[in-house]
Simulated scan of single mutants.
Amino acid sequence: MSSIEVQIWTDGACLGNPGRGGWAALLRKQAHERVLSGGEPETTNNRMELMAAIAALEALRRPCRVELSTDSQYLRQGITEWVPRWQRNGWRTASKAPVKESGSVAAPGRRGEAARGALVVGARPQWTSRKRARGPSRARRRRGPAARMNRIVVLDTETTGLEVNQGHRLIEIGCVELGDRRRSGRHFHCYLNPERAVDRGALAVHGLDDAFLSTQSRFVEVAAELLEFIDGAELVIHNAAFDLGFLDAELKRLDVAHVPLAQRLAVTDTLLLARERFPGQRNSLDALCKRFEIDNSSRKLHGALLDAELLTDVYLALTTGQSALGFAFDAEAAGAAGKGARMSTQARAAIRITQRPRVLLANIEEQAAHALRLDALDKASKGACAWRRLEADAGDGA
């Protein structure tokens, strides 16, 4: 078998998904390089990933050994695994929905062959995965504005049990999309047939029983849509290690070479954020909803999409001080607040700080109560009260 003759790196993305997008490919043969690029005014992330690979393969003019490197799981698995199944189903998914990118991979002649990973001229690419690039690779630079997307996907799951290492499986996935810290209106939600029984303890948490789940799709049937939805986004998850552990386990069942999601996408764990901000306190989703006055009265049982919606509000509240204070005050929210109505998290995040807050100093009674409390702490700690030491140091400095 001959060695690799041509190396190809591809990338693609769009602003908004769907929205304006671009793709690029770098082909290298020994010391020779060629860069291809293109774009469309209205497209999707996955279409741009596909177009990059198709254009690169079409550019080859004779039979050769090719190594094609991509950070898109959708591209790799779509062409090597899912396309044959879609083709048998008349370019429809297992849920009978039309395959969104069928126009790219089902095209006749040379382009169709390239999309399915086998050029008419004989090149059969060896597919390799890479981690999502952090730096400005040449292919990534060519995407232009599409590379600067600011998408966030808030994600939650439900499972048959607590331990993925004991063979427990996913049974529900819920995702909410944010753009520039605002809900875009897009979400992903599905129930799954885990092909195993649900533990009693888990059933009490989410209420999803074996009879209901046995009628749902299997993970392999929704994986492409899920990967398309989260592609290129920052994931926000509460206790991320748990959900990512189950997602990676499911994806690895489909592809043993699967690269963990945390190595391909940025991940923010709201549990860790909450523990940093509220050390020593309960930081469950319910506790945070109560702390931020977020209405979770409909949460009688856990549900992936419901919990993702609640977590969206919690995340915005947790991170409000980081980037949201520059927006103008929303007029409608201001009117509601003037009538005594409770503002939503997004409305609170939209308030602009126009002056420094007034600092209130403790009065004599409060200072006396504080001194008594310090006396008690100092006694209980046998003279190790940090406040007392600070006061002594301040006195020495004076």
Rank of each mutant, 00 (worst) to 15 (best):
R76T: 01
T70H: 01
V222P: 08
P136F: 09
W9L: 14
I353N: 12
I79V: 15
D248I: 06
D378V: 08
A139T: 15
D243C: 05
S95K: 14
N296A: 15
A115C: 11
A331P: 11
T320P: 00
A107C: 04
H258T: 10
A240K: 08
L316E: 08
L227N: 13
S184I: 14
A25N: 01
S69P: 00
R342A: 12
A94Q: 06
T319H: 05
L192D: 07
N46P: 08
A308Q: 09
A13V: 07
L26C: 12
Q346W: 10
D307G: 04
E250S: 05
A139Y: 01
V176F: 05
R299P: 08
R253N: 14
D210N: 15
R142L: 15
K252N: 09
E293T: 09
L254R: 06
M1V: 10
R388A: 06
A147Y: 00
G103W: 06
S102W: 02
A308Y: 07
I8P: 11
A274T: 01
G280M: 01
S217T: 02
V314C: 07
R76M: 11
V35D: 00
T319N: 02
L247F: 02
E81P: 00
G38C: 01
D378T: 09
R47G: 06
A394D: 03
S69G: 01
L377Q: 15
L57D: 02
L377P: 05
V256P: 07
A52E: 06
M51C: 02
D71E: 07
K29C: 14
E58K: 13
K29V: 12
H187I: 00
A123K: 02
R124P: 00
P125L: 05
Q73H: 15
